[in-house]
Design a protein around this nucleic acid. Structure first.
Lengths: 341, 341
DNA sequence: CTGTTAGCGCCTTCAA
DNA sequence: TTGAAGGCGCTAACAG
């Protein structure tokens, strides 16, 4: 049987209340008493029963998620995942508050972060824009002792407790290898399509992609990055432009969102000119394109996993507990037409 | 605030004990009373607090895992994952019992299943051998109301509550696509290396692989399957044999274990003759070979995820709760040298 | 600074 | 067939 507070109390020769005060680092205990209790905890290998504690406290964890009000499939998927988490909110003793911010707007995000922190939630998760003012706000929050997790896109520096998202450099490298090996042995141009170089995940994917292309596939030359702001209409125009030009584009890496526009444009490219395409995020659009042979591989991050992971981590941090690291690593799913779920 | 048993009791005009009896389907309640309580539960949308219930019951979930005593890296990894789960056993209120059975032995497995069930655990997870006597034992267990989950390899028919493992047909198809596309446009032979065609997961991978090769890559011809019994020494000899012959082998799919032998043999193949290789399971061996360029892609199933998933599902079933389906889907990880964790 | 006591939501004797 | 009372492990008033 696991030891309980009673065991600690009698072992240390104090009352339950005192044990509780020590366990929860509340003031009003003499150094000597504190020591006795700590000793007993240590000797007995006591681990407090979080479920019982929560029951006694009637505790719920108010969590705030700050998400860009970007209308693309991935962000919508993220919202769906949050809604699903809300369904289980009662059982998991969490209460999720969703805050929208304009996309790619560092100032707005910093403000939203401060506003969220003012409500003193048990934890905050946010999609980072990698800018100094955001980092400053994040640092304040961490300093205030509120658990803070970046979601999908990370923040440079260490001003957060955890990052719930994929390794974007690995994603970029993987995209490069797949594109390079899928595109046969010939020469040609490779187009790269991003949302915005202001977000760290896009920048990291892009840089890693370019590095591997240069190193392993020198026969392919990478064209300057196009920024489509994750907007389908913009993306469509850009891609159409690419294929009406004279350059021979043999491959295309779409590392951002807005793939609806990409697919529309690809559909109009004559079959014999169609490039090898790797895109990000499995949505209705990319799934269809994969099956139709317009896209060759999709790299995906599972928004549901990211949300659940962020929640687990925030709760654990709030309780001062450690997490199962392997469980919280967000994997890069690689989908071909053959392994669609 | 969520409704509690008190709310139900007063709403139904009965005592707490009666509510409890109804909630837990214990006898000794008149039909009319039962109905009143059910009604109140329904009207108030009552969901019982499992944590509080477990606290009151002092409940732990005794879970039995039946694992083949097969000495390959993957099974060792499975054991490690179980040990890690044991570390958190206290917090999660589980007690894991590990039972070994001879590998590929249906009779022994069926016996082990019955023995495990006799101890009346809260749930059983096992690596299935796909045979009628196993299915019979499984059916008995399910009929006895003990939650039952297959792990890694599934059982034909529906005699289990859940399968915690990957879609092996999808894995085979994916391997085929990767091999086909990585191997350029030329003709040639493709070797397939399995452990044993008697195991369902190997059979499924193999058949799906062959189907896609025939359909999408007719220029490549698949050689008869070699069965290496997951034994490194046997595998090494077979692969060496392959490459000392006159046939031009451009690709190789290793869908079983024993990759230590495969890699050893590959190291001796002259660089210009090296085939495109796809293997299963990320181990020290395959990781090294991936980095060295001897293996081009590794398909992996995460033993840790499988174990954690099996535990979550068994607990949920034991409590009569539903699971988050998407969370319990075991993914096929695809690793290139670029996205190694 | 420390201890007593009464719960949190649920389950389980023991009586009626 | 029903109910009252006590307790699971922990926390939080409220007294000393």
């Amino acid at each position: 049987m696991r030891p309980t507070v009673h065991d600690i109390a009698s072992r240390a020769g104090v009352s339950l209340a005192t044990v509780d005060r020590v366990l929860n680092r509340r003031p009003g205990v003499s150094a000597r008493t504190r020591e006795k209790v700590d000793q007993a905890v240590h000797e007995l290998g006591f681990v407090r029963d979080v479920a019982a504690a929560n029951l006694a406290k009637g505790r719920t964890y108010p969590l705030t998620f700050i998400i860009p009000s970007n209308d693309n499939s991935f962000m919508r998927g993220l919202r769906v995942a949050l809604d699903e988490a809300r369904v289980r909110a009662g059982v998991e003793r969490i209460a999720i508050r969703l805050v929208d911010v304009p996309a790619f707007d560092a100032a707005a995000l910093a403000m939203a972060l401060r506003a969220a922190a003012a409500a003193e939630p048990a934890g905050i998760a946010f999609v980072a824009v990698d800018a100094p003012e955001v980092a400053a706000a994040a640092a304040e929050i961490v300093a205030a002792g509120i658990p803070l997790v970046t979601l999908v896109s990370d923040l440079s520096g260490a001003e957060r407790d955890h990052y719930a998202g994929i390794d974007n450099a690995a994603a970029g490298r993987t995209a490069a290898s797949l594109l390079g090996r899928f595109s046969g042995g010939g020469k040609g141009k490779v187009a790269v399509l991003a949302g915005s170089m202001l977000v760290r995940d896009h920048r990291e994917r892009c840089e890693a992609f370019a590095a591997v292309m240069a190193q392993d596939f020198a026969r392919l030359s990478v064209l300057p990055v196009l920024e489509g702001r994750d907007d389908p209409a913009v993306v469509e125009q850009m891609v159409s432009g690419l294929f009406s030009g004279l350059e021979e584009i043999v491959a295309l890496y779409s590392l951002g969102a807005g793939n609806r526009g990409l697919v529309k444009a690809l559909e109009r490219v004559p079959a014999r000119l169609r490039p090898v395409v790797v895109a990000h995020e499995l949505t209705e659009t990319t799934r269809g394109a994969l099956q139709a042979g317009l896209i060759d591989a999709v790299l995906n991050q599972d928004a549901g996993h990211e949300v659940r992971s962020a929640i687990r981590v925030l709760k654990a941090k709030a309780d001062g507990l450690s997490v199962v690291a392997a469980q919280e690593r967000i994997r890069i799913d690689i989908f071909l037409k053959d392994n669609l779920p």
